[in-house]
Write a protein that binds this DNA or RNA. Structure first.
Lengths: 235, 235
DNA sequence: TTTTATAATTTAATAGTTTTTACAATTTGA
DNA sequence: TCAAATTGTAAAAACTATTAAATTATAAAA
C-alpha cells in the first residue's frame, strides 16, 4: 500500500500543518472529514490535500472522506511521533531557551524535553516544567546515560560553532539551531534545521510594503484583485 | 531596470538569507563576491543566485561579480528596510514575547521595537532593552500616537482571536502570529505571518528518522548516496 | 431489499512553477 | 590584445499543483 516513490520535502513540510488541524478536529469531536471541508478550513485546495495524503497510501474512503482519528495517527506515524517519541535537550537557557522549554505543544506533538543546559551559575538548578537546568559540564555524562535525539541550540552567536561541535561529538543526530548563524557540519548523518525568525519578519515586512503599494495603485485605478493575505511558514 | 514581472514568493523567502550572508561579508570587509563563491558559502547553486537577483534587475557585473555593499543595499530596498524602518510592538510579554524583545537582530534588519503590552500587573513597568511593558488598556492610545506597522502576537491560544480583532481594529496592518492557532482575519489589507515552531521541529524529526532508516539500509547494501543534511526555513 | 442519486476518493493527465543548464556577451587583469 | 572570469538570460528539465475521469461508498427512496 505505502507508495515507495520518494516523497518531496514540499509535501513533508505541509504534514505538521495537517497534523495540527486534525488535532483540532479531534478536540471538537469531529470524526470524519472530506478533503473539501478540510480545504476550506485550511485555505488550500482539496486536490492538494488528496494528492498529499495519497503519497503515503489511501487513508480515505470514496464517498465517505477521511476518518479523522485514523488520519491523525497515520500522519503521526509518517512524522515519526507515534511509537517513537523524540527526546530533546535545550542548550542555552536564555530567553529563547526558556521560552521553548515552556512550550507545551512540543510534548503534544511527540517531543519530550529531557534536559536543559547552560553555563550561567545563576540558572543551574532552576527547574522549568520539572526539568532541571544543568551545567554544560554535565552534558557528556547526561548524554551517555540518556537517550537524546535532538539538541536545541539557543546559545549566543559566538558560541555556536563550539557547542555544535561538542554536541556532534556526543553522537546527537538532530540539531535545531536558533542562533543567528547558519550551522553547517561536516557530518552527513547529522540533520540540522536552522531557524531564522528574523527572516520571517522580513518577509512580513516585504508583503506589507507590497500590499500597501498595491492598495495605493488600486485607489487610483479602482480595479479589484485577488489578495492572498495570510501565510504559514514552518518553524 | 526593475523587472515588472511578478516576483514569486519562493524568491522573496530567500532574500533575507542573502541579506544575512551579505551582512556577514560586509563585516569581513569583503567588497566583491561572485555568484559562484556565494553559492559555495550558502550551499545553493550559483545559477539560482543569479536568477534570483536578476528578478530585480542586474546588480552584478560580468567578469567582476557583485559589489557586496551595493547588493546589500539593493536587497534591503526590496525588502523595505532601507528608508523605511518598520515599527513593531509585542503583545504578550511571556517567555516568547520577552525572548523576541531581547532579539537584537531585528533592529539590525530594520525593525524597531517601540512598545510591549501585557495584562499581568507584575510585568507592567518593567523595561526590556529600554522599552517599557505597558498595560493592554494603554494600547489604543499608544497606537493613535505612534507609528506601528507590525504587531507581534505572543499571547496564549485562547486570547488570540480577541487580541487579533483588537489590533486589526486599531489599523495595524502586519501581524506576526506566534500563537498555536493559525490566524485568519476577514480583512484583505492585513498581512499575517503565522509562525509554528513545532512544525519545524516535526520536520526535523521526520528527516532524522528518514536519515537513520537510510543509514540502516546502507549498512546492508553498502552503496553511497548524496545526502543533503541541512536546511533553512523561514521564521 | 434493491435501486439510484450523490458524495467523495484515487489516479492519470495536464498545466503551471521553479530550478538548472548552457552559452553569448561583457569585463577584468596580465 | 587576449585568456579567464563572470553575469544575464533563454531554453530545457525537474518539480509541484490542479483538473478531470474512473471508481467506490453512502444514504434515501422505491
Amino acid at each position: 500500500m505505502a507508495n515507495s516513490k520518494k516523497i518531496s520535502i514540499a509535501v513533508i513540510r505541509r504534514l505538521p500543518r495537517y497534523y495540527r488541524y486534525l488535532a483540532d478536529l479531534l478536540r471538537m469531536d469531529i470524526t470524519r472529514i472530506s478533503s473539501k471541508e478540510l480545504s476550506q478550513r485550511m485555505g488550500i485546495t482539496a486536490s492538494q490535500i488528496r494528492q498529499d495524503l495519497n503519497c503515503f497510501g489511501g487513508f480515505g474512503q470514496q464517498g465517505y472522506g477521511y476518518n479523522v482519528e485514523v488520519l491523525y495517527k497515520e500522519i503521526g506515524k509518517i512524522l515519526g511521533v507515534v511509537n517513537n517519541r523524540f527526546h530533546f535537550i535545550i542548550i542555552g537557557a536564555g530567553n529563547m531557551g526558556q521560552a521553548l522549554a515552556n512550550y507545551e505543544n512540543f510534548e503534544k506533538r511527540g517531543f519530550q524535553l529531557v534536559g536543559i543546559f547552560d553555563i550561567n551559575p545563576q540558572l543551574i538548578g532552576k527547574k522549568i516544567r520539572n526539568v532541571e537546568i544543568m551545567h554544560m559540564d554535565q552534558l557528556d555524562e547526561f548524554v551517555k546515560n540518556n537517550k537524546v535525539d535532538i539538541a536545541v541550540l539557543t546559545v549566543p552567536y559566538k558560541n555556536i560553532p563550539e557547542v555544535a561541535e561538542k554536541v556532534a561529538s556526543l553522537g546527537i543526530k538532530g540539531l535545531w539551531n536558533f542562533s543567528a548563524m547558519d550551522l553547517k557540519l561536516p557530518y552527513d548523518d547529522i540533520i540540522i534545521e536552522n531557524v531564522h525568525l528574523s527572516d520571517s519578519l522580513m518577509v512580513l515586512g516585504y508583503r506589507l510594503k507590497e500590499s500597501q503599494k498595491k492598495k495605493k495603485k488600486k485607489e487610483g485605478t479602482n480595479d479589484s484583485g485577488n489578495t492572498n493575505n495570510e501565510s504559514n511558514t514552518n518553524n
